[in-house]
């Protein structure tokens, strides 16, 4: 059955609808928008203003100007606020798309992600603030609570587990975390939309039967830091496509 799923994935990969979103993100990036009528081309995603090649693969990371560890989405929102003059509310109102309602963030993250395609995930978390974030992410990964007694590790802390026919990666290993992290953002066929990593992890918490975290919450960025650190060295294949 796993082979059949692999074949299904292969068939899906031929013509990924996320490619359209990537093109949209590219034009959004260069378009002058917002109260300041500015593009995002001077946005520093961690490698310097406008330098996007490999940026996604090396996030989350510590940023001096905000004194925070930021992921691709929180940094993008920061740029849209500082460079273009949008309010946080305006930027994050449609942080994920709904039928008939597109999300600029999804498009921009798909575009930024694609600029890391073929590059190695590189989040060694050597800065003390990054190391702290990775450790806090590890804590959250193992933290159990809720009516089903879930934690991330219940499903993703061992080898050879699955939900129905879906194999579950062991995210505590480089191989497992790498397999999971390299394909995001990803087009979800069952959802008809591209999902960002924030969306993915917030949905994991929904599946754990927990309350809903804030978009861009530190706990989500901490989990991302932990997972990207585990996945470091894995070559990105993005945008991905999944069932």
């Amino acid at each position: 059955m796993a082979d059949e799923l692999a074949k299904y994935r292969e068939a899906l990969a031929d013509g990924n609808p996320a490619d359209l979103l990537e093109v949209k993100g590219e034009s959004l990036w260069a378009e002058k928008r917002g109260p300041k009528n500015a593009s995002l081309e001077q946005c520093d995603m961690g490698l310097g203003p406008g330098k996007l090649e490999g940026a996604y693969a090396s996030l989350p990371k510590y940023f001096k100007d905000t004194n925070k560890v930021m992921d691709v989405e929180s940094r993008l929102v920061h740029c849209m606020m500082t460079l273009q003059g949008f309010t946080q509310e305006e930027v994050t109102k449609n942080w994920y798309s709904k039928p008939g309602k597109e999300s600029d963030i999804e498009a921009l993250v798909t575009f930024i992600g694609a600029k890391s395609n073929g590059m190695k995930i590189n989040v060694p978390a050597t800065h003390p603030e990054e190391a702290k974030m990775a450790k806090m992410g590890e804590y959250i990964f193992y933290r159990r609570s809720g009516p089903q007694d879930f934690s991330c590790s219940i499903c993703h802390g061992q080898e050879g587990k699955r939900i129905r026919l879906q194999d579950l990666g062991n995210l505590t290993t480089k191989e497992g975390a790498g397999f999971a992290m390299k394909t995001w953002p990803s087009y979800r066929v069952s959802q008809g939309a591209v999902w960002t990593m924030q969306r993915r992890l917030i949905d994991c918490m929904r599946q754990a039967r927990w309350p809903e975290p804030n978009y861009l919450a530190d706990s989500i960025i901490a989990l991302e830091t932990y997972l990207q650190k585990n996945a470091t060295g894995t070559v990105m294949e993005t945008p991905g496509i999944k069932r």
């Binding site: 702290k132 450790k135 806090m136 590890e138 804590y139 959250i140 990964f141 193992y142 933290r143 927990w210 309350p211 809903e212 975290p213 804030n214 919450a217 530190d218 706990s219 989500i220 901490a222």
Partner: peptide, 22 residues
């Protein structure tokens, strides 16, 4: 133990991360 010396901070951060209207 997961979180090491940051376990307490992590617990606090985790709880503070949820929407106020939950």
């Amino acid at each position: 133990a997961p979180g090491g010396k940051y376990a307490k901070d992590a617990e606090q951060m985790f709880r503070a991360s949820f929407r106020a209207d939950n």
